[in-house]
Amino acid sequence: MLSALLLQSGYNAALVAIGAALLGFAAGMVGTFVNLRRRALVSDAMAHATLPGIGLGFLAMVALGGEGRALPGLLAGAALTAALGLWAVQALTRTRLTEDAAIAAVLSTFYGAGIVILTVIQTLGAGKPAGLETVLLGSTAGMLEMDAITLAIGGALVLAVLAVLRRALVMTAFDPGHAAMMGIRTRAMDTALMLLTLAVVLLGLRVVGLILIVALLVIPAAAARLWSDRAGVVAMIAGGIGAAAGHIGAALSATVPDLPTGPVIVLLCFAAFALSLILSPKRGLLRRLGHAG
């Protein structure tokens, strides 16, 4: 197990662990802005809404004569229905329903549609559907060099965009009215944030799975917030926590049998959050107890 952490248990396992660390870093950074803009639950709905798209992408590729599991097709489908889900949330909030109800309704309906399509694929027996359901909870088993490289490039792109937009994103989250007066196109910034989130969700499908990916966005960012009062520093710490959780989680699940990757990474994130809650210099329980005593 130690050898897995130290990247000595084989080339593939090492690559996957590095890929997961990059994913975690990007997710923690993006998640900081998601939390600040209060989009945590919308992101969850978007993640669940990728499922029907993955199924449709698979069916489309089988219909075109492929074997169905090629990543680009699955990702294109996922992005399409995730965007549709996001649009549906926005459309529903224009009725008298509140945002939380819209999110819950879209999340469950799209997920249900995805489950229906997955069962259609199973009954058809076409293509090579085995393992398609790993997008639900993630699995690094069978990940290849190609997947790790995709994670690395995707993560780097997300970080690059974030580096350019960070100031505008912070200002939009803090005070949208003022940001608009300063010439920032706040709606474009919100769209950009959702696209970045979507990118993290898509990258995270293989590793963490769509049901739990929101945790990798939200939890490291919430933990990091306990350590600093500066948005930029919070984002860096969140990235660090996400990277550590991704790396250790992927390595653990590669060595211990029956250890699903997504849940392990999520629990590691939560451990970091719990530790932060105890040790944080400002809000930490230790400090509070110290004050009380």
């Binding site: 250890l259 699903p260 849940p263």
Partner: peptide
């Protein structure tokens, strides 16, 4: 707070 809670508990359940 909800996002942290339900993902963590669900992950624990699966594990």
């Amino acid at each position: 707070a909800m996002g942290i809670t339900f993902t963590t508990l669900f992950a624990a359940g699966v594990l």
